Amino acid sequence: MPGNAPWAQKRGGVSPAKTCLLLSLPLAVLVILGLQAQGGVMDAVSVLVTPTFADPQELLLYFAWWPRLVVALLAGAGLGLAGVLMQQVLRNPLASPTTLGVASGANLALMVATVLTPGLLVIGREWIALAGGALAVGLV
Protein backbone atom coordinates (compact mmCIF):
# COMPACT_ATOMS: atom_id res chain seq x y z
CA MET A 1 0.00 0.00 0.00
CA PRO A 2 1.46 3.36 -1.00
CA GLY A 3 0.12 5.08 2.12
CA ASN A 4 2.18 2.82 4.35
CA ALA A 5 5.51 3.38 2.63
CA PRO A 6 8.22 4.55 5.07
CA TRP A 7 8.90 7.72 3.10
CA ALA A 8 5.19 8.59 3.05
CA GLN A 9 4.83 8.50 6.83
CA LYS A 10 4.64 11.70 8.79
CA ARG A 11 7.74 12.46 10.68
CA GLY A 12 7.72 14.11 14.06
CA GLY A 13 10.34 16.62 12.92
CA VAL A 14 10.89 20.10 14.19
CA SER A 15 8.95 22.86 12.48
CA PRO A 16 10.72 25.93 11.06
CA ALA A 17 9.12 28.11 13.72
CA LYS A 18 10.54 25.94 16.49
CA THR A 19 13.94 25.98 14.80
CA CYS A 20 13.93 29.78 14.63
CA LEU A 21 12.87 29.98 18.26
CA LEU A 22 15.63 27.61 19.27
CA LEU A 23 18.22 29.58 17.30
CA SER A 24 17.06 32.87 18.82
CA LEU A 25 17.57 31.68 22.40
CA PRO A 26 21.30 32.58 22.41
CA LEU A 27 20.32 36.06 21.20
CA ALA A 28 17.88 36.40 24.09
CA VAL A 29 20.60 35.34 26.52
CA LEU A 30 22.95 37.98 25.06
CA VAL A 31 20.26 40.66 25.36
CA ILE A 32 19.65 39.75 29.00
CA LEU A 33 23.39 39.75 29.72
CA GLY A 34 23.72 43.15 28.06
CA LEU A 35 20.88 44.51 30.16
CA GLN A 36 22.42 43.05 33.31
CA ALA A 37 25.57 45.04 32.56
CA GLN A 38 23.42 48.18 32.27
CA GLY A 39 21.80 47.71 35.68
CA GLY A 40 19.33 44.88 35.25
CA VAL A 41 16.40 43.88 33.10
CA MET A 42 13.74 45.44 35.30
CA ASP A 43 15.61 48.75 35.48
CA ALA A 44 15.99 48.80 31.68
CA VAL A 45 12.29 48.13 31.16
CA SER A 46 11.31 50.78 33.71
CA VAL A 47 13.59 53.29 31.95
CA LEU A 48 11.83 52.45 28.68
CA VAL A 49 8.34 52.86 30.17
CA THR A 50 8.88 55.79 32.56
CA PRO A 51 12.19 57.58 31.99
CA THR A 52 13.35 60.05 34.64
CA PHE A 53 16.73 60.91 33.08
CA ALA A 54 18.21 61.38 36.53
CA ASP A 55 21.12 59.04 35.91
CA PRO A 56 23.50 58.99 32.92
CA GLN A 57 22.96 55.22 32.77
CA GLU A 58 19.25 55.85 32.14
CA LEU A 59 20.11 58.27 29.35
CA LEU A 60 22.32 55.62 27.77
CA LEU A 61 19.59 53.01 27.95
CA TYR A 62 16.83 55.27 26.68
CA PHE A 63 18.67 57.07 23.89
CA ALA A 64 21.26 54.49 22.81
CA TRP A 65 20.55 50.92 23.86
CA TRP A 66 16.81 50.59 23.20
CA PRO A 67 16.82 52.42 19.83
CA ARG A 68 19.73 50.31 18.59
CA LEU A 69 17.96 47.11 19.61
CA VAL A 70 14.74 48.14 17.88
CA VAL A 71 16.51 49.26 14.69
CA ALA A 72 18.54 46.03 14.59
CA LEU A 73 15.38 43.93 14.93
CA LEU A 74 13.54 45.97 12.28
CA ALA A 75 16.47 45.84 9.86
CA GLY A 76 16.79 42.07 10.28
CA ALA A 77 13.06 41.61 9.77
CA GLY A 78 13.13 43.84 6.68
CA LEU A 79 16.04 41.95 5.13
CA GLY A 80 14.37 38.63 5.87
CA LEU A 81 11.11 39.85 4.34
CA ALA A 82 12.93 41.10 1.25
CA GLY A 83 14.58 37.71 0.77
CA VAL A 84 11.31 35.83 1.21
CA LEU A 85 9.52 38.15 -1.21
CA MET A 86 12.25 37.70 -3.79
CA GLN A 87 12.00 33.92 -3.47
CA GLN A 88 8.21 33.97 -3.72
CA VAL A 89 8.04 36.35 -6.69
CA LEU A 90 10.66 34.42 -8.65
CA ARG A 91 9.30 31.04 -7.46
CA ASN A 92 12.84 29.94 -6.73
CA PRO A 93 13.80 28.88 -3.20
CA LEU A 94 17.48 29.49 -3.99
CA ALA A 95 16.98 33.08 -5.14
CA SER A 96 18.83 35.65 -3.10
CA PRO A 97 20.30 39.08 -3.81
CA THR A 98 23.77 37.59 -4.10
CA THR A 99 22.88 34.69 -6.41
CA LEU A 100 20.88 36.90 -8.75
CA GLY A 101 23.49 39.63 -8.91
CA VAL A 102 21.44 42.34 -7.23
CA ALA A 103 24.13 43.03 -4.63
CA SER A 104 26.83 43.05 -7.29
CA GLY A 105 24.80 45.40 -9.48
CA ALA A 106 24.35 47.80 -6.57
CA ASN A 107 28.07 47.68 -5.79
CA LEU A 108 28.98 48.21 -9.44
CA ALA A 109 26.66 51.21 -9.72
CA LEU A 110 28.20 52.76 -6.61
CA MET A 111 31.71 52.17 -7.89
CA VAL A 112 30.95 53.63 -11.32
CA ALA A 113 29.24 56.64 -9.79
CA THR A 114 32.15 57.21 -7.41
CA VAL A 115 34.84 56.92 -10.07
CA LEU A 116 33.21 58.44 -13.15
CA THR A 117 30.52 60.81 -11.88
CA PRO A 118 31.07 61.74 -8.22
CA GLY A 119 28.49 64.50 -8.58
CA LEU A 120 25.75 61.86 -8.64
CA LEU A 121 26.57 60.94 -5.05
CA VAL A 122 24.83 64.14 -3.97
CA ILE A 123 21.43 62.50 -4.58
CA GLY A 124 22.35 59.72 -2.17
CA ARG A 125 24.26 56.48 -2.31
CA GLU A 126 21.16 54.43 -1.55
CA TRP A 127 19.40 55.67 -4.68
CA ILE A 128 22.37 54.85 -6.87
CA ALA A 129 22.62 51.39 -5.31
CA LEU A 130 18.87 50.88 -5.77
CA ALA A 131 19.14 51.80 -9.45
CA GLY A 132 22.09 49.45 -9.93
CA GLY A 133 20.27 46.60 -8.18
CA ALA A 134 17.12 47.21 -10.21
CA LEU A 135 19.15 47.22 -13.43
CA ALA A 136 20.75 43.94 -12.43
CA VAL A 137 17.34 42.37 -11.72
CA GLY A 138 16.08 43.68 -15.06
CA LEU A 139 19.01 42.09 -16.85
CA VAL A 140 18.53 38.77 -15.07
Rank of each mutant, 00 (worst) to 15 (best):
S104V: 02
W65G: 02
A136P: 00
D55Y: 08
L35Y: 04
S15L: 13
V137W: 07
P118D: 04
R11G: 12
R68A: 13
V84T: 08
F53H: 06
A72I: 04
V29A: 13
L33W: 09
P26R: 09
S15E: 06
W7V: 00
Q9E: 15
V71R: 05
L81H: 02
A72Y: 08
P118S: 04
Q9M: 15
L121N: 05
L73I: 14
L139K: 10
W65I: 00
L23Q: 05
V102C: 07
A44P: 06
G133H: 11
V47L: 03
F63G: 02
L130T: 03
A95W: 07
T50W: 09
Q87L: 02
P118C: 03
L100V: 10
L79A: 04
G105N: 09
S46F: 13
G39F: 08
L139M: 09
A131M: 06
L25R: 05
L79S: 02
L61T: 05
A113G: 04
T50H: 14
L116P: 00
L120H: 12
T114F: 14
C20I: 03
T50N: 14
R125G: 05
L59M: 12
V47F: 10
F53W: 10
P67Y: 11
G78Q: 09
R11F: 09
Q9Y: 13
V49Y: 09
V45L: 15
P56C: 09
V47A: 14
L59D: 10
L61Q: 12
V29K: 05
V112N: 13
L135M: 07
A37D: 04
A5N: 08
Y62P: 01
V70E: 02
Q38K: 06
G39Q: 08
L79R: 10
P16V: 00
S96E: 04
G3Q: 15
A106T: 01
W7Q: 14
W127K: 11
P56W: 11
S24Q: 01
L33A: 13
L27T: 13
P67V: 03
C20A: 15
G119D: 11
G3T: 06
L74N: 03
L108G: 03
T99R: 07
M1I: 06
L108V: 10
R125A: 11
G78A: 15
V122S: 08
I32S: 05
G119R: 11
P2S: 15
G40F: 09
R68L: 04
R11H: 12
R91M: 03
L22I: 06
P26D: 07
L120K: 12
V112H: 13
L90Y: 11
T98R: 10
V102N: 09
L69Y: 05
W65V: 02
A106Y: 08
P97D: 07
L135C: 03
W127T: 01
I128A: 12
S24I: 00
V84A: 15
L73G: 15
V45N: 03
A8I: 01
A136M: 02
L21K: 02
L139H: 07
K18V: 02
